[in-house]
Design a protein around this nucleic acid. Structure first.
Lengths: 160, 160
DNA sequence: CGTCTTGTAACTAACTTGGTTACAATCAGC
DNA sequence: GCTGATTGTAACCAAGTTAGTTACAAGACG
């Protein structure tokens, strides 16, 4: 499958915004952490902004910030903000309606596909961006120096 | 998204095989019902055969049949037979490990993505091909003539 | 005004998908 | 063994998707 990497990138970026604690982060910083182009980040975050998850501001000192608290953004919110197409779909060409199966397969398939995707989303509802940030912080391990006081963007460390 | 239609086609074909009740159906017949090319059907069914869901036989009178009873094939079996790549994946380029979030996002993301996909599969486990066939039969409605006795491939009706 | 940043269009390269043709391999029945 | 039906599979094409990139307009702030 064309691996769906937008979801992973969205979680990375939202995790960054939550973890950084800075008032805003620029798409340049986010792109550096994800290792991609700032435009890719802006495109993705545009979807998240439409869903009310983040806000942006232009100009010097501008950038992106969470519009809700990290506890209040579930992975399901992110999934819904990004994925507009259903997970499973019927092929473009309609099946033959001269055949009992072809005539009714769509009516039977569609609700099944919807329920399966709903189960996926329901599971995503159980985890928040804040939960993810906790997991990340746990893996960073005890810090000799409290990174949150070195600079305003602690998560960047000594990035080039 | 590049809508995943293989899943829908697989269910259609398996439903056809179960509903038809004929000893075998040819990829030509299946392709006619799905409204696609026989080669597409053979390619897809090759995956299902590897998973032990169907069997094929060449030569005259040959074709495809279910290798297990329709009650014994869950939609999860079909999903696993078809999808080899994980539903969610990290982007090809590794994130920056100069950043706390970039360094650990994959370790946090991977199990989350796996659990979400597991929830999807778990839901698919609840429905069998037989369940689908019942739903289809219900929609066909009461038949003036028992179609299963007109011919050997009742579901084809008067297909061209 | 000058500069930093977002917003967005346009283009490209790589990949995926479904469709199609072609042909070898297999098998049943005569 | 010959014939014909059917699967098995490689090769190729067209269309669509995705990520990446460049370019530049628009907005915000000192």
């Amino acid at each position: 499958m064309a691996a769906n990497t937008r979801f992973a990138v969205a979680l990375h970026v939202l995790g960054f915004l939550a973890y950084a604690g800075a008032p805003v982060s620029t798409s340049e910083q986010l792109a550096a952490s994800v290792n991609t182009n700032p435009v890719v980040i802006r495109r993705l975050l545009a979807s998240l902004r439409e869903a009310g998850l983040v806000a942006s501001q232009a100009g010097p000192g501008g950038g992106w910030r969470l519009e809700r608290s990290a506890e209040d953004i579930s992975l399901a919110d992110v999934y819904r903000a990004i994925e507009d197409e259903p997970l499973f779909a019927m092929p473009a060409r309609d099946p033959s309606d001269a055949c009992d199966v072809g005539a009714h397969v769509q009516a039977v398939f569609d609700p099944l596909a919807g329920e399966a995707e709903a189960a996926l989303i329901e599971r995503l509802e159980d985890t928040s961006i804040a939960d993810m940030v906790v997991e990340i912080a746990l893996r960073v391990g005890p810090c000799p120096i409290d990174q949150h006081e070195i600079e305003h963007q602690p998560s960047l460390g000594a990035m080039t």
